[in-house]
Amino acid sequence: MADQSSNQKKTNQFTIIKDDPNDGHGGYGIGSISLENMSSVIIDPNDDRAFVDMGAMHARSEVERRVKFQDDKDVVKNGKRYWIVWVTTEKGENGPYFAGVGGSEIIVDRSIKRAYKSMPEHVTHMEKSLKGKIVVDHMDDHSKKLLRDFLADFEGGDMWNNSTDELKSALATE
């Protein structure tokens, strides 16, 4: 009988480990990155809204569903722009704060059920967010304002108040 495991598509390409990945065993998952402090915030400048959608962690957010992704922006010339913002939180001496933020563009054209996103860009922005970097310079001012207002209002604003001046100035709009 032939080995069927080599013929089956590997479906577990990325493992999310919430606890210490080096808890004594040396098996599957060692060296994985913990994403437990990261959330995905969707910025919808078309409808003036921002909201957490953890489905984006697996490319299944509200705006990503029921479309086929392309790697060519020309396919979605008439599409609507959204941002998936990868937000990492940390705990500091004054309490929790927004440590890293990376905004990644997606363009969706529901009329043709197609969308554009650059997976390398999303991965890079996730990684930078995890490392405490702020990557929002490429976002439009309206979207940055929506993000700033969302973060500043989140749970009474304590996390925003505890965040760095770098984040606050990066999201400041003229």
Rank of each mutant, 00 (worst) to 15 (best):
M1C: 05
M1V: 07
A2L: 12
S6V: 13
S6K: 06
N7K: 11
N7L: 12
Q8Y: 08
K10L: 11
N12T: 15
N12H: 15
Q13C: 10
F14K: 11
T15C: 13
P21D: 14
D23M: 12
D23Y: 14
H25C: 09
G27T: 11
G27L: 14
G29P: 00
S32R: 14
S34I: 03
S34Y: 07
M38P: 03
M38Q: 12
V41A: 10
I42K: 01
I43Q: 03
P45N: 04
P45Q: 05
N46M: 03
N46V: 03
N46C: 05
N46H: 11
N46F: 08
D47T: 05
D48F: 13
R49I: 08
R49K: 15
R49D: 14
A50M: 10
A50E: 08
V52Y: 09
V52W: 08
M54D: 11
A56E: 08
M57R: 13
M57D: 07
A59C: 04
A59W: 05
A59D: 08
R60Y: 06
R60N: 04
R60A: 02
E62V: 05
R65M: 11
R66K: 04
F69M: 03
Q70K: 03
D71Y: 02
D71A: 02
D72H: 06
K73Y: 06
V75P: 00
V75Q: 01
V75R: 02
K77P: 00
N78Y: 03
G79S: 04
G79T: 03
G79M: 06
K80E: 09
Y82W: 04
Y82T: 02
Y82L: 02
I84G: 07
I84E: 09
T89L: 12
E90D: 10
N94Q: 15
P96M: 13
P96K: 15
Y97N: 09
Y97T: 06
A99Q: 09
G102I: 09
G103Q: 05
S104H: 13
I106K: 02
I106N: 03
I107V: 12
S111T: 06
S111M: 00
K113G: 01
K113E: 03
K113R: 02
K113F: 01
R114S: 10
R114V: 01
A115G: 08
Y116I: 00
S118I: 09
S118V: 08
M119D: 14
P120K: 05
E121I: 05
E121V: 08
H122Q: 13
T124Q: 13
M126I: 10
E127I: 05
K128H: 12
S129Y: 08
L130R: 02
K131G: 02
G132D: 00
V135I: 05
V136S: 10
M139F: 12
D140F: 10
D140P: 09
K144L: 06
K145P: 14
K145H: 10
R148Q: 12
F150W: 12
A152E: 14
A152V: 07
A152I: 06
A152K: 14
F154T: 01
E155R: 06
G156E: 11
G157M: 11
M159Q: 14
M159I: 12
W160M: 08
N161G: 06
N161E: 15
T164I: 07
E166C: 06
K168Y: 04
S169L: 07
S169M: 07
L171V: 07
E174W: 01
